[in-house]
Design a protein around this nucleic acid. Sequence first.
DNA 1: TGTAGCATGTAAGCCGTTACATGATTGA
DNA 2: TCAATCATGTAACGGCTTACATGCTACA
Lengths: 192, 192
Amino acid sequence: MPATADGFLPTSSYVILGLLSFGTRLTGYELRQWAEGSVRFFWASPSMSQIYRELEKLEAAGLVDAVDESGDAERARTTHGITVAGRDELRRWVEDAPYEPPMIRHPAAFRLFCAHGADPAKVRAMLEEHRDWAASLLADLAEVEADLLGDERFEAPARVATWGLRFFGAERRAIGQAIADLADPDPPTPEV
Amino acid sequence: MPATADGFLPTSSYVILGLLSFGTRLTGYELRQWAEGSVRFFWASPSMSQIYRELEKLEAAGLVDAVDESGDAERARTTHGITVAGRDELRRWVEDAPYEPPMIRHPAAFRLFCAHGADPAKVRAMLEEHRDWAASLLADLAEVEADLLGDERFEAPARVATWGLRFFGAERRAIGQAIADLADPDPPTPEV
DNA sequence: TGTAGCATGTAAGCCGTTACATGATTGA
DNA sequence: TCAATCATGTAACGGCTTACATGCTACA
């Protein structure tokens, strides 16, 4: 059953299990939406086709169950829930998986890294676009946090949202400073 | 030549071109080391085999050249440099590539997200391991920044290092607060 | 003498994406 | 009636990793 060498499933599997662990039965489509509204802030939310394949695999392993809820309607609708074995596997991962550092792919930072010789105006525009992205993400995340706070069921996700707000808040501030530093000639602002 | 739909190469190609753009001729092995010492802070530094395949591809496209510097020695040694076409392609990417947001894979945050029902002591230990990782990364990055500052050739990378120090500094602080919040019962600290 | 580092590759395979394909339902 | 959304998949492919394989060189 375990796919990877360390005896745990690929993390994408735990993304599905994690979302289902809050108790609501979900279709593949809904899983995608839930992922977009939460997981995407600290994990790439998987594509639809990825989700369906993951669900099949997890069901075959007995970690997830599937129920056809199409009813009379023509429209197909299969909801998925987490099984006891699924909960056990998720908890095992949360508690005992070997630590893995975050992996960041930051095109904007890397483009700045290569910016010598490039048109400063274009570099600046790129950074501004990134700052806007960060601002919009922060707004989304603040909304998510507001929804989570207060509901005891969502205590853990709320902690992550709070963490994310600090994290991305710092990113927005840092990128603002980087843009300012670009404008001023030499002196990179001190204060770390 | 362009591999992806938007007319640009995959970002890994620009990682190689970016490192070579500072002017030093490098072997595949050395490219790996340079990547570990700089790019890895904001991009997954590619594996050796990836680097060699990338170099082959870039050479075939005329963006990189290769010179056998084995000399008399038995030991194979091929250095690579960036061509004029390579510089043009890199600058084109820095200036005109469509904006892409950062992609973060943050296992620690995601495990906290799923932490309801898990042993709090184990969750805490996991977060502490993450905090230590962040601290050690910060130390490495501070060293890198110190090396870069002062050399005009490395102005752009120095800006990124400064940015990274702010960014990861915030991460370390945020994780410290998350750990503290776990200890205190309910009240998630305010101040965003 | 032997271990760590230098140096280069091949093969297999997973993970995940995009593109393609299909059709029902809801609301403007 | 038309578009957006709901809902589910298949096929092909690209990118990147791990594991495997090889051998030299410097140093302790």
